[in-house]
Computed example of a mutant assay.
Amino acid sequence: MEPLVQDGEAVAIEQEAPGDVAARDMLLDRAMGPRWRKKTSQKIRQGRRPADGLAFVARSADGGLAATVRLWNIEAGIDPFGRPVPALLLGPLAIDPALKGCGVGAALMRHAIAEAARLGHGAVLLVGDAPYYERFGFTCAKTGAIALPGPVERERFLAVELVEGWLDGAAGMVVPTGRYVTKSRVRATAIAA
């Protein structure tokens, strides 16, 4: 992908590399504070790997992490026939506080959604500020009968369908379906944090 230029500085969107995990966690702490680890969505992500090919970073010209986003495999309840509804959970999206308002987060979001669609996923859910995520097509119109395993403000539980009608009739609890992180990787991540 061609680099973006934000305030004269080049920023490139890339797949997250294994060596980015510690820097990613530090960026999340700077951008969101340590409470991001206690959020309801984190309970779904805990101990799981991001969906294949759907973990991205925006890297500044000096190689540092400017922003990060991951998407996770979930089931968004069941459909009216009792079948699980596969989907993705997005988050967290974090931008280096020094780059907020420069468009890096929006570019990263557009890239992540486009890749999810290209890979054949049907919908993306997230918990976030509706005024920010509405520009990417997210609304709470399809999440009313879907629940998360913890507290969440309903107007912040949003979804975008990548395939029209994908979430029609979806109801029930969101559950993680992604692969587990191996024990050695969990230990290495815990030590790095």
Rank of each mutant, 00 (worst) to 15 (best):
G144T: 07
L125T: 13
L126S: 10
A123P: 10
D62E: 15
A130S: 05
F56W: 14
R179Y: 09
D62N: 15
T177Y: 08
A98P: 04
I78A: 10
G82H: 12
V104N: 02
V175D: 00
F157G: 09
R83N: 15
T143P: 03
A159L: 00
S60A: 15
R179A: 12
G137C: 11
A171K: 14
L158H: 10
L125G: 13
F157Y: 11
L126Q: 09
A98K: 05
G53Y: 09
A66M: 02
L88E: 03
A112N: 05
L90Q: 05
G64F: 11
G178H: 03
G82F: 12
G128S: 03
A98W: 00
E164T: 13
R59V: 12
P84A: 07
R179T: 02
K100Q: 13
G150P: 06
D129E: 12
I95H: 06
H111A: 02
E155F: 00
G137F: 11
P97C: 11
G120K: 07
P80L: 11
L167I: 04
G128H: 02
A76F: 05
D129K: 07
A106F: 10
R179P: 10
A114E: 15
P149D: 14
L126C: 09
H111K: 02
G120H: 06
D79A: 07
G64H: 15
A170C: 05
E153F: 03
G144V: 02
L158W: 14
A76V: 03
A55P: 01
C140V: 06
Y132M: 01
K142H: 12
A116I: 06
G105M: 01
A61K: 06
R83A: 15
A116Q: 13
R154A: 14
R118Y: 11
H111C: 09
A117F: 01
M109L: 10
P84Y: 01
F138S: 00
R83P: 02
K100C: 09
T68Q: 06
E155I: 02
A61T: 11
